[in-house]
Each structure stands twice: as structure tokens, then as C-alpha cells.
Amino acid sequence: MSDATLAARTPLDAYGRTIGTVTLAEVAGLALVSAAVPHDGDEAFAAALADGFGAVRPASGDSATGARPATRVLGMQPDQVFILFEAPDPDQAVPTAAAALGSAAYVTDQSDSWAVLRMSGTGVRVALERICPLDLDDLAFPEGRVARTVMEHLAVMILRDGPDSFLLMSPRSSARSFRHAVELSVENVSGP
């Protein structure tokens, strides 16, 4: 047996940059687990989610915060939520979720599937206007709202986690194209 252990690498190598009034920063250390609800298992799932994560099940397009650290449950599909939570040991993402939810959900690890970028600052919506087709107005997309959409040919999940703060998740393989697209949007709207 080899004595090598495997070192982890994040999709954006801990990228962070401030351009004008907008700050971009990769968010690491979060587990992301999808939980699919078995047919006729809505009640059991709601109970398990409450027990395991201290969260209510959000409707599609909404999110709910939970009791565990940094937990947010994202309503992504009619029978599926994504659970975002702090995970000191990323290998424990699925075991943690599975333990919490038991047979009330089919869980799948998504932690490594997405590059996670927080985009914050006063100019954030003006910059997002250049790539995001969604209406991010306060009334149309208030804090806690989440959506999956497409920006510059890239799939993106967007969660508003503050008045001027958005969490953007895009597939890991195209993370560098994604970072570039976001950077360019900010550059194009920031002062000379």
C-alpha cells in the first residue's frame, strides 16, 4: 500500500478579487448534498429534514436556513432539494446527510460538482445584469430566493444570501470560464 494521501483542490484555488465595488470570492468548506424525496415520502422527508437539519422544506425557488452551521436548504426541483452545510471533513458530506435523513431521502454528493463563488458589494446587481437573465429586483428576487439558470452558456445556481450578496454555483469543469465571465461582467460595469 502507498503511504500517499490525496490532497484536495478547490475548483477556483481559493480565488478572491475585488473590482471596484464588487468582491468575488470562492467559497470552500461547504458540503452540498442533493436529497431526493421518495414517492409518497413527503411527510417523512419533512420530518427528517426538521430533525436532521432543523430546517423546513422550501418550495422550488426558495431556500430555508437550518440549525446546523451555515445550513441552507435549496428548493431545486419538484422532488429534490440541495442541502448546503458546513463540513469540516468533506468526505463526511454524504454520511452526515444520510445519517440525518435516513431512508427519508436518496442522497447524492454534489459538493465537488460545483464551483461556489460569492459575489457581493453595492455594484453586484449592475454587474449581474450583464449575464444573468433573471430579474434580481428586490421584489422579484428577495433574499433567500434561489434559481437555476444559464449565464454565458454556463449553468448557474444563484442564491441571494444578502441585500447585496449572491452565491453563484456553476459546474466545476467550466469553473474557469465561469470565473472569467463573472469577472468580465464586473470589469465592464466598473469605473475606468
Binding site: S34, H39, D79
Partner: peptide, 11 residues
Amino acid sequence: DVHLISVTEQW
């Protein structure tokens, strides 16, 4: 009762 999710990016 079947559920799908892409894990192309995960592994």
C-alpha cells in the same frame, strides 16, 4: 420511484 442526478462533475 426513481430519481436522477448528474454526477459527471462530482467524480
